[in-house]
Design a protein around this nucleic acid. Structure first.
Length: 887
RNA sequence: GCGAGAGUGGCGGAAUUGGCAGACGCGCGAGACUUAGGAUCUCGUGGUUAACCCCGUGGGGGUUCAAGUCCCCCCUCUCGCACCA
């Protein structure tokens, strides 16, 4: 079967060193250039290229000051031989300007073509600029985008800025610069954008957006109103993580090892009035719909764990001597008969009612101590369990026993019901606690050695000692797996328990006491939260020069009296504005939608365009967002789905995390280690194409790997070689372009390379794709012919330049990707390894059609000396693979 | 402790429906061209060896004609969660 070569073609690569000397390669003619256009027919034709048309010896490149100075330097140092090397500065600048001018990468809806939405996690524009780690992910998506364009896809590849957030505000306050965060942010964005353009990333800049732009956060606020309308945003007095040093409340996710992620300050528990989003209402869907996406296994696992769904039962224990009951959640109702005491979280509301007057002092002391402890301290104390007896008792519903009720901080108020039944025989924590306080341990699952350790396996063992006192109900003799549904049904029948599903996931603390964030579109009237009418959005972030926290726990906005006091537009009542701002996650929750329709002033997004572009086909970003951003984003997306704004249940179809790039010393890059690699330096020295190529050549995209500047030099040499395949020493296109037909061997290499590169890009195996292009270039150099490597997505600048020199007038960005002929990817000769007893003893070269008998005969000859006349007992023949003689 | 992933030359890494281990690149060695070479080009480069043999994919067993790849046990590293009832 012969596949016609699509109209587009190849491009060639090559590149040359950073500033130095021109290469002095012999100036003899080198091979030919294949013109893809000519390949439509069966034979592999070569079309001559008219040098007068394709070469531009006086064009912008050669005219550039850079080249001229380089030229002059070469002349003086180089004497007789003058040649022109690839000048990455000039060529890259030229094509970047061309792409800008022609808006080459602008995406417009086109119902005829298939779409491909290729998205990077947009960055927080920090003051330090892009680092080589950013570049890894951006280069990957850029290669895929360029590749897909050439494959006929309508590609949406946008970029924007997640620009609200603490650092810019801290820069004004903590560093005492007083510089407005808006100003810092604008500068940083300019730096990022300049750097991105220098790398040759093919974004559609017409769609650029920033979360700090009122036209953008207007819709962030709009989404909040939708959440509010649906009861998914509410205010609660909740214990929060208060960081005195930062003067703000932090989310759980912003705390690492009990200290603030930013700055490492102490964090304590403090009850406060907070906005909370009811993400728990979507817990099931967030879990279930993970089945719909193609994400890394580790990320799926982390999301599942974070949601933490567990199935069990709620069970009511009546209080002894006091009205009411305490509810517990357990995944193991089969162990109810083994409960010997109960434990409440210190914060549990029933503690007061349960504690008789003579125990109050001790109980209160313990509760106070627990409240004062930070999370860090609680964790440190995990060596030995602490707790006190409340003096109260509860009744075990299965056997009427009186169980002493304790409080202990190993029981968390925030999980389940904040209370447990303790079954020390079969729970490690309860076992330790019971040992410490000499509480009874009763075995109800046979199979372990409970005097030595808790027996916790559900899969093994048999239930014992589990019959009601009156003998009317028993689960004795059952396996735990069978006992659980039986006792759950029994509890339900007696109305003392029921099947229950519990989640680790908690509602999302959504408020921050900061200036540089989205203001809430909420007014307070008579202590009641009222939404701002949609028409009044955006609620602008007020101007100020004082970004310090108010100190009372309110944000800097609380200092702005004029802004604060307003009236309810519905009835003119005096109102006070909400002073909290939204967390940084808010803006990043839905930015991928706005890229689709960034200028729409009437709607968040046009429904038709949303249906065309969504979902995101490929999303690349760091694994540090495996849970938070990706979970919050999915939550908002599902709400918008319910609201009718989006048409897909999940936003991101395929997700990939790029690995971390380490410093040359194999350590994490950090300023303090002094091993940070600056992309600008690298591009100055080697050019953007070389840096892009190296980023991808380092290793698998998802792996953590060290930077090597030597390695960049290596790919630079490859680019140089490729350039020289096409361009003669004097800077003109190689004059030896003829109409001769290239050897079959060349065609094979070419087609094999096209095949490999095509498949590797599809599978995001960029390192092996590059390696094959290198093989191709190396082979072509030897053969003195000119093939193309499929370089355009990887080294777009050089590819454009070569493309132009081949006589093309238009950017190759939308040219068709070359196809390969499968027939040409296989050789007509095979090298078959010959083994004796499984060890390699020789190789033979046979024709493709060689029969088994022929191959075996040749093979025998080949290893005759090893066999020493012995006759093989057995011959293993794997067609086209190998022959193995067993003697 | 629990969960997930990974261990291959001096280095980054190729190769897993079991079938030539080390592609490609770095580094290193030799040579060519040079007044020169930190440029470029050519050849070589897992260990051992004069050569053959032999040994080699974290360690130890096993299955197989054949194991980096499959099975069992162990070690190490990375990431995540860490009293979640």
């Amino acid at each position: 079967m012969s596949v016609p070569w699509p109209r587009g073609v190849p491009r060639i690569p090559a590149r040359f060193p950073w500033g130095g000397w021109p290469p002095s390669w012999p100036s003899e003619a080198w091979g030919l250039s294949f013109d893809p256009e000519a390949l439509d027919g069966s034979p592999f034709l070569i079309q001559s290229v008219d040098p007068t048309q394709s070469c531009d010896p006086t064009g912008s490149v050669l005219d550039s000051p850079l080249f001229r100075s380089f030229h002059a330097a070469s002349r003086t140092t180089h004497r007789s031989r003058m040649s022109r090397a690839y000048d990455h500065h000039a060529v890259e600048a030229k094509w970047q300007a061309y792409w800008d001018q022609h808006r080459t990468f602008r995406a417009t809806e086109d119902p005829v073509r298939p779409k491909f939405y290729c998205l990077d996690m947009f960055p927080y524009p920090s003051g330090s600029g892009l680092h080589v780690g950013h570049l890894e992910g951006y280069t990957a998506t850029d290669i895929v985008s360029r590749f897909k364009r050439m494959r006929g896809f309508n590609v949406l590849h946008p970029m924007g800025w997640d620009a609200f957030g603490l650092p810019a505000e801290q820069y004004a306050v903590k560093v005492k610069t007083g510089i407005h965060p808006a100003q810092t942010t604008a500068q940083n964005i300019a730096t990022f954008k300049r750097q991105m353009k220098r790398v040759g990333l093919s974004y559609d800049w017409d769609r650029e957006l920033s979360t700090t732009d009122p036209d953008y956060y207007r819709w962030t606020q709009w989404i909040f109103l939708k959440l509010f309308e649906r009861g998914l945003a509410y205010v609660a007095e909740v214990p929060v993580n208060w960081c005195p040093a930062l003067g703000t409340v932090l989310a759980n996710e912003e705390i690492v090892d009990g200290r603030s992620e930013v700055g490492g300050f102490e964090v304590i528990r403090k009850p406060m009035r907070q906005w909370v989003l009811k993400i728990t209402a979507y817990a099931d869907r967030l879990l279930e719909d993970l089945k719909l996406v193609d994400w890394p296994a580790s990320t799926l696992e982390m999301q599942k764990n974070w949601i933490g769904r567990s199935i069990g039962a709620d069970v009511e224990f009546a209080l002894a001597g006091v009205a009411g009951s305490v509810r517990i959640f357990t995944t193991r109702p089969d162990k109810l008969f083994g409960a010997t005491y109960m434990v409440l979280a210190p914060e549990h509301p029933l503690v007061e009612a349960l504690t008789p007057p003579d125990r109050r002092g001790e109980v209160q002391a313990y509760r106070d101590a627990a409240a004062r402890k930070s999370d860090l301290q609680r964790q440190e104390l995990d060596k030995e369990k602490t707790g006190v007896f409340t003096g109260g008792y509860a009744i075990n519903p299965v056997n009427g026993e009186r169980l002493p009720v304790w409080i202990a901080d190993y029981v968390l108020m925030s999980y389940g019901a904040g209370a447990i039944m303790a079954v020390p025989a079969h729970d490690q924590r309860d076992w330790e606690f019971a040992r410490r306080f000499a509480l009874p341990i009763r075995e109800v699952i046979a199979g372990g050695a409970i005097d030595k350790e808790a027996f916790v396996e559900t899969e093994r063992g048999t239930v014992i000692n589990s019959t009601t006192p009156d003998g009317s109900f028993s689960i004795d003799g059952l396996t735990p797996a069978d006992a659980i549904p039986k006792i759950t049904a029994w509890l339900e029948g007696r109305n003392t328990g029921r099947k229950a599903i519990n989640y680790k996931l908690r509602d999302w603390l959504f408020a921050r006491q900061r200036y540089w964030g989205e203001p809430f579109p909420i007014l307070w009237v008579d202590g009641e939260a009222r939404p701002l009418p949609e028409e009044q959005l955006p609620l602008m972030l007020p101007e100020t020069s004082d970004f310090k926290p108010s100190g009372t726990g309110e944000s800097p906005l609380a200092n702005l009296a004029d802004w604060l006091a307003t009236t309810d537009p519905r009835n003119g009542q005096p109102a006070r504005r909400e002073t909290n701002t939204m967390p940084q996650w808010a803006g990043s929750c839905w930015y991928y939608l706005r890229f689709i329709d960034p200028k729409n002033s009437r709607q968040l997004i046009d429904p038709a365009q949303e249906r065309y572009w969504m979902p995101v086909d490929l999303y690349i970003g760091g694994s540090e967002h495996a849970v938070l951003h990706l979970l919050y984003s999915r939550f908002w997306h599902k709400v918008l789905y319910d609201v009718g704004v989006v048409s897909t249940p999940e936003p991101f179809l395929k997700l990939v995390h790029q690995g971390i790039v380490l410093g040359e010393d194999n350590q994490k890059m950090s300023k303090s280690r002094g091993n940070v690699v600056n992309p600008d330096d690298m591009i100055d020295r080697f050019g953007a194409d070389a840096v892009r190529l190296y980023e991808m050549f380092m290793g698998p995209l998802e792996a953590m790997k060290p930077w090597s500047t030597r390695g960049v030099e290596g790919v630079t040499r490859f680019l140089d070689r490729t350039w020289r395949l096409m361009v003669a020493d004097d800077g003109s296109l190689s004059p030896a372009v003829t109409s001769a037909e290239p050897a079959l061997a060349s065609q094979r290499i070419l087609h094999q390379t096209i095949k490999k590169v095509t498949e590797d890009i599809e599978a995001l195996r960029f390192n092996t794709a590059i390696s094959h292009m290198m093989v191709c270039t190396n082979e072509m150099t030897k053969l003195e012919t000119r093939p193309r490597a499929l370089l355009a997505p990887f080294a777009p600048h050089m590819a454009e330049e070569l493309w132009e020199r081949l006589g093309h007038r238009q950017s190759l960005a939308h040219e068709a990707w070359p196809a390969f002929d499968p027939a040409l990817t296989v050789s007509d000769r095979l090298t078959i390894p010959i083994q004796v007893n499984g060890k390699l003893r020789g190789k033979i070269d046979v024709g493709l059609e060689a029969s088994q008998a022929e191959v075996e005969r040749c093979a025998l000859d080949e290893v005759a000396s090893t066999l020493q006349g012995k006759t093989p007992k057995k011959v293993i023949y794997v067609p086209k693979k190998l022959v193995n003689f067993v003697v």
